[in-house]
Nucleic acid binder design. Structure first.
Length: 115
DNA sequence: TCGATGACACGCT
DNA sequence: AAGCGTGCCATCG
């Protein structure tokens, strides 16, 4: 199916499936995208993702719930604002995954990713 | 074709 | 409990 798509594109599709108001970890995205353990690649894929894709990159954080950027980074501030705008409070550049952690549903993934 | 890179994750000290 | 160093893999030039 998506075999013709690049790994990066699979990452983009997976990120695009993250529901608003929820957040997912790099490792989780990599796993859902069919690239278990390739969390590092997710970072690169997002960096390569064209802004025209309008991907919700701000919903992607570390497995511990902390933002991937430095607290004083411009992007960190932007990500914090974007998440807050979706109803996800970011405290000290960190999000409570226990509450806002995205719990992917197989049906939704199959419908949008067609894996 | 080869070498270097990277918005990470995990383990050990 | 917190911090540091290492390893995996795909993409870019």
């Amino acid at each position: 199916m998506n075999k013709s798509l690049s790994k990066a594109e699979q990452i983009w599709h997976t990120v695009a499936v993250i529901p608003k108001g929820k957040v997912a970890a790099y490792g989780q995205i990599a796993d859902l995208a069919g690239l278990p353990g390739r969390a590092r690649f997710v970072s690169k894929a997002l960096h390569l993702a064209p802004e025209t894709k309008c991907l919700p990159w701000h919903r992607v954080l570390r497995t511990n719930g902390q933002l991937a950027f430095a607290a004083d980074s411009h992007y960190a501030c932007l990500q914090t604002k974007l998440l807050a705008a979706e109803g996800v409070p970011v405290i000290k550049n960190r999000v409570n995954l226990n509450i806002y952690g995205w719990q992917p549903e197989l049906g939704e993934l199959l419908a949008k990713l067609s894996f």
